[in-house]
Amino acid sequence: MILKYPDPTLLQISGYVRHFDDELKELVNTLIATAKEHNLKALAAIQIGIPKRVVVLEKGGNFIPLINPTIFAHSGKLFLSKERDESLPNVEVEVKRFPIVKVMYQDLEGKEEFLKAQGEEAVLLQRKIDMVFGGMLFDKLSQKERKKFFKEYGFIDTCPTYFVKDRILAFLRIGLTLHALALLLSFFISFSLPSLTLFLLESFILLFYAFYARYETKKYKNCTSCQNANIIGTVGIYFAVILGLFLLGEVSPIFEKV
């Protein structure tokens, strides 16, 4: 089965093939069979859900496997190419392509080979090798064109525009702002804040954020701003603020007495 966008698997960056074994031969055979079944001239392994750097290309009536393919050279002037892809059905995108490319790849035995492609074949290879590296047709568009593309075709980006974890953080931010204001007020009006209770409550919300953010990180692996490093940094910063407010709350009665 050929995967179709917005299946997130298509956005994975495929890894190098390091073992030239029977499993690889089996993958190539499956790719060729799938390409023939769908009447395609080329197919990347990621399109059937296998994140390995493998592309099969029809050449002279036969399919050849391109293992670990890279485009190392091009010639001719960039031109606008109208393209469609089976993983992005019913969509036509105009992208800039080179008319001639040179591809380095390995055969099924791991031997280095070279291929010079031009015209339609060159365009096809540029698109398939982009997919090997996690790039879809719309990644070749400018930001403005991309927005228009998503609007026109009604696609939902696989990465949400907001995360639930951000809402938890917004809620905590409001709470911390109110806490800070109340603390400031306590310097002028005599009332006592339940500092320890607030500290525990705010820490609990932060802990909940950390766990939920971790869950979202696993759910949207291909999206940025949901990386572990971000979560750790955010938790650190917010905890410093929570601790600061707690300590200020603890010392404020001393100031009052002074």
Binding site: L11, I13, T70, D130, F133, G134, G135, F138, D139, K140, L141, Q143, R146, D157, T158, C159, N222, C223, T224
Partner: peptide, 15 residues
């Protein structure tokens, strides 16, 4: 990060 999701630097640099 390029266009909302993660791609290889190959795709991003070419763009």
């Amino acid at each position: 990060k390029w266009g909302g999701h993660i791609v290889s630097s190959k795709v991003m640099m070419e763009s």
